[in-house]
Design a protein around this nucleic acid. Structure first.
Length: 552
RNA sequence: GCGCCCGUGGUGAAACGGAUAUCACGAGGGUCUCCGGAACCCUAAGUCCCAGUUCGAUUCUGGGCGGGCGCACCA
């Protein structure tokens, strides 16, 4: 929508330039916008103000030139005015909107442009340690990452979804020791549960499985049986939960492969060669002043074990070497500092880090009727993502996780998410879809659908009511919202937009009767319009990974 | 204490540096009851504070204040 009007104004500037009225021939970037104030028209242009300085002319004088030089062969502009300090306000004609609707109807992408141009983007998300079930917090991560991936795919990026699987290091040893202790316990043998061991019942389940399979055969076991059994069971659990949310990955990257390939060693060598690290107190440190950090950070502990950040540096170097155009890392707020350390180290090694785009999300709290639901990671008193899905289902969970921008705290209201009423935003949007679907079923029964015989803008010509034009105007903004959400990595923009579209639909629907109108052309036009609304809701929800039900 | 992020009506959000700060929900008052549980109108209510840059600041800069997160040889 904006682009068509922009083209009009661009030609106006060119014409003014050719006539010697302006020294520039180009319309300033971003000078055309949809004003928030309806009184200011459908489209506003502030080019006159932006050009005032370089043209050495009063903004309003420039605006007058632009206005005079606009050619409008298509009859798009219904009304134009110069307002305020030099805004050019345009009100568009019904005909413009009819053409807009016709264009959308023919466009499978509904106005979303292929801004990705096939660029390859990696989205790394979830990456939870395989030490226990996914929690509600991981749920926000999973939904955010997956929705970003969908948005990027929807704008013609090629996307790879990856889960970094921390299956090496101390946590896994503690996990193995926890399982071993429960195993011995089940056999009635003396056992010592590790001080920082994992308390959850799932550890007992793993141990029980080992008892069933091996009996007492593992009492003296020194190998990896406990670790492997735990990893396998928990990983299967994590995948099952992800399936329920509609989240899939193209690749699981195992941390231990970085050891096997020698990548960790190579990173240490390179850091040492470039003087970015040093040995001290039996450990290897990343030197703060050399990489631009506050404090020195340990890379290898005096025990000889690498600290978490070292494999993470190796992992990111691996990702960079794969040649992605962009690397999106979805991280909880508690991981920001560590991520910055990794990026700082990589940058100091001479790599271009611009492709790395962290998306930070804040924590989730659950509420029920305004009361906060207690969650504590200690003592395993957390609510698992599975429990949340049991209660509210995937659609509500996904939608709710996306109703706030990621960088703000999220209060997840369990009762609201379950409600089947209009104040539940998921229900409100899905209902709009089901409502149109139902109407079409009735229209078909009445033989009204076939009445829409016209093609192109003609088909929409009977639409003149304010609520009808409002719907078209709204639909015409879909492409831009999706593009911005993808570009800024902000899925919540689409969530809000869909709620507004649903509201616009309900407003129309209650004001005007579609079926039973004596003018078949008008019935056909309205059905065509509503079909477009339905397709757009379905497409938008699809980008969020939420279903668009036909009835509910 | 230091670092990062965030402060917009009651709540959640929007505003390439642009017009009288927009939208939704909620609150109060009124209207309507028809394809599916709706919708419409009116009212009250907001840029945390102080400076600076600018023709113009919610937006940029500095300083306060408030909140979150981090500041482990944990991940």
């Amino acid at each position: 929508m904006k682009r068509r009007v922009e083209a009009l104004l661009r030609r106006s500037v060119e014409a003014a330039h050719a006539a010697g009225e302006l020294s520039t021939a180009t319309l300033p970037e971003g000078s055309v916008e949809v004003p928030r104030e309806r009184q200011h028209g459908d489209v506003a242009c502030n080019a006159a103000m932006a050009l005032a300085r370089s043209e050495r002319k009063a903004p309003r004088a420039i605006a007058e030139i632009l206005l005079r030089r606009i050619e409008d062969p298509g009859g798009w502009i219904r009304e134009s005015s110069i307002a305020g300090p030099g805004f050019l306000n345009l009100r568009l004609s019904p005909r413009f909107w009819h053409e807009e609707a016709a264009a959308l109807r023919e466009d499978p992408a509904l106005g979303v442009r292929p801004i990705g141009q096939g660029r390859l983007v990696q989205v790394e998300f979830v990456s939870a340690n395989p030490t226990g079930p996914l929690t509600v917090g991981h749920g926000r991560n999973a939904v955010l990452g997956d929705t970003l991936a969908r948005l990027l795919e929807g704008t013609w990026h090629r996307v790879e979804r990856e889960y970094y699987f921390n299956n090496a290091g101390r946590q896994m040893k503690v996990l193995a020791a926890s399982v071993r202790a429960r195993y011995l316990e089940l056999l009635g043998r003396p056992s010592e549960f590790p001080e920082d061991g994992y308390q959850g019942d799932y550890i007992r389940d793993v141990a029980r499985g080992l008892v069933e399979r091996h009996g007492e055969g593992l009492v003296e076991h020194e190998g990896n049986a406990f670790r492997d059994a735990a990893e396998e069971a928990i990983f299967a659990d994590i995948r099952a939960t992800q399936d329920r949310l509609g989240v899939r990955f193209d690749r699981y990257f195992n941390e231990d492969s970085l050891y096997a390939s020698g990548a960790i060693e190579r990173v240490l060598e390179r850091l040492a060669e470039q003087g970015l690290s040093e040995h001290r107190d039996g450990a290897i440190w990343l030197k703060a002043e050399r990489v631009g950090l506050e404090k020195d950070r340990v890379l290898v502990k005096s025990t000889g074990e690498p600290a978490y950040r070292l494999p993470d540096v190796a992992y990111h170097l691996d990702k960079l070497a794969r040649g992605y155009d962009a690397i999106v890392d979805v991280l909880g707020a508690d991981h920001i500092a560590e991520h910055q350390e990794v990026v700082a180290a990589i940058s100091a090694l001479g790599h271009e880090v611009a492709p790395i785009r962290p998306v930070i999300y804040q924590f989730v709290t659950l509420t029920r009727n305004g009361e906060q639901v207690k969650m504590s990671t200690r003592r395993a008193e957390y609510v698992t993502l599975d429990e949340l899905l049991d209660e509210v289902g995937s659609d509500a969970a996904r939608f709710f996780f996306l109703t706030r921008k990621s960088d703000s705290h999220l209060e997840f209201d369990l009762e609201l998410a379950k409600k089947r009423e209009a104040d539940n935003p998921v229900f409100y949007v899905q209902y709009a879809h089901a409502r149109i679907f139902n109407l079409f079923a009735q229209a078909e029964a009445a033989g009204a659908v076939a009445a829409a015989t016209h093609a192109g803008a003609e088909a929409f010509a009977p639409l003149v009511e304010e609520e009808e034009i409002d719907l078209v105007r709204r639909l015409a903004g879909y492409g831009e919202v999706v593009e911005i959400a993808a570009r800024e990595l902000e899925p919540h923009r689409l969530v809000f937009w869909l709620q507004e579209l649903a509201a616009t639909l309900h407003r129309f629907y209650n004001r005007h009767r579609v079926l039973g109108d004596e003018d078949p052309a008008r019935v056909g036009a309205r059905l065509a319009l509503l079909d477009l609304v339905r397709r757009t809701i379905a497409a938008g929800l699809g980008l969020l990974g939420v279903t668009a039900p036909e009835r509910m």
